[in-house]
Simulated scan of single mutants.
Amino acid sequence: MPASPDQIAHARDLFGDLGDISTGGMFGGTALYAEGDVMFACILGGTIWMKSDATTRAAYETAGARPFTYAKAKGDQVVTSLMALPDSATDDPDEAIEWARLSYPPALAAAQKKRREKARKAARA
């Protein structure tokens, strides 16, 4: 289910220092974008999930964050590229923006990869 207007407003308040935050649909939830197409976080099931990769995962784990998990027929699927915003940051814009800045490089890398793939597809058309 997409995030409520209140959840989106709260996320925009938390990450306001990143500038204009746009939103879009994602896995039935709501993706949060900086700079138009850099998906640095999303809201799924009422939780804010931050973009992560091998370089950031340990910091999230040390802060007690858990990876996004969803059920499949053969068992739970763990998505380590999305880590929960640590509980201590859910109501602290100063801390939340630090996590957003940590998540920005992996989010930018993913956006750049999508841009390249889109450009390749357009070139073939």
Rank of each mutant, 00 (worst) to 15 (best):
A71S: 15
L14I: 05
R66W: 10
H10A: 13
D13C: 12
M26Y: 14
Y70H: 11
D37I: 05
K72P: 07
R57Q: 13
Q77L: 13
D37T: 10
I43P: 11
P5R: 02
T47A: 10
L14V: 11
G24N: 06
C42D: 12
A34G: 03
A63I: 07
G24H: 09
L44S: 14
A11C: 06
A11W: 09
D6L: 10
G19L: 01
C42H: 11
E35C: 08
A65R: 06
T55E: 15
G75I: 12
A71R: 15
A54R: 03
A3S: 11
A71L: 14
A63P: 09
M50P: 10
A34S: 12
F15H: 00
Y60R: 03
I48V: 12
F40L: 11
A41S: 00
Q77W: 06
T23G: 04
D37K: 03
A41F: 03
G19T: 08
K51A: 15
D76G: 14
L14N: 06
Q77Y: 12
I21V: 06
G19H: 01
S22E: 09
Y60D: 08
G24C: 03
A41C: 00
G16M: 02
S22N: 09
G36A: 11
P2Q: 12
F40V: 11
I43K: 07
K51E: 15
K72S: 04
G36W: 14
E61P: 09
A54Y: 00
T30N: 06
A11T: 04
K74A: 12
S22C: 04
L32D: 10
Y70L: 04
I21T: 04
F27A: 07
T30R: 08
I8W: 14
T69P: 02
R12L: 04
T30V: 13
T69K: 14
Y60Q: 06
M39T: 09
L18M: 09
K74W: 00
G19V: 01
M50N: 07
D13G: 15
L32S: 06
E35Q: 15
A34V: 01
E35W: 10
M39N: 10
R12H: 08
A34M: 02
E35D: 15
A34R: 03
Q7F: 12
A71V: 14
G16D: 04
L32Y: 06
I48L: 10
T56Y: 01
I8F: 09
A71E: 14
T23F: 05
P67W: 04
R66T: 15
F27Y: 14
T56Q: 01
A31K: 08
T55F: 11
G16C: 06
G24F: 05
I21L: 02
P5E: 05
G19K: 00
W49R: 06
S52Y: 02
L32G: 02
A54C: 00
T62H: 07
T55A: 15
A11I: 07
Y60T: 10
S4V: 05
D6I: 04
A59L: 14
I48D: 05
G24R: 04
D37V: 05
T69M: 14
R66D: 12
G19A: 02
K72V: 01
D6V: 08
I21P: 02
T55L: 11
Y33Q: 13
V38R: 00
P2W: 05
M1A: 13
L44D: 10
S22V: 03
I48Q: 05
D20Y: 10
G29C: 02
C42A: 12
R66K: 15
F40D: 11
A58F: 12
L44Y: 13
A65M: 08
A11P: 13
A3R: 05
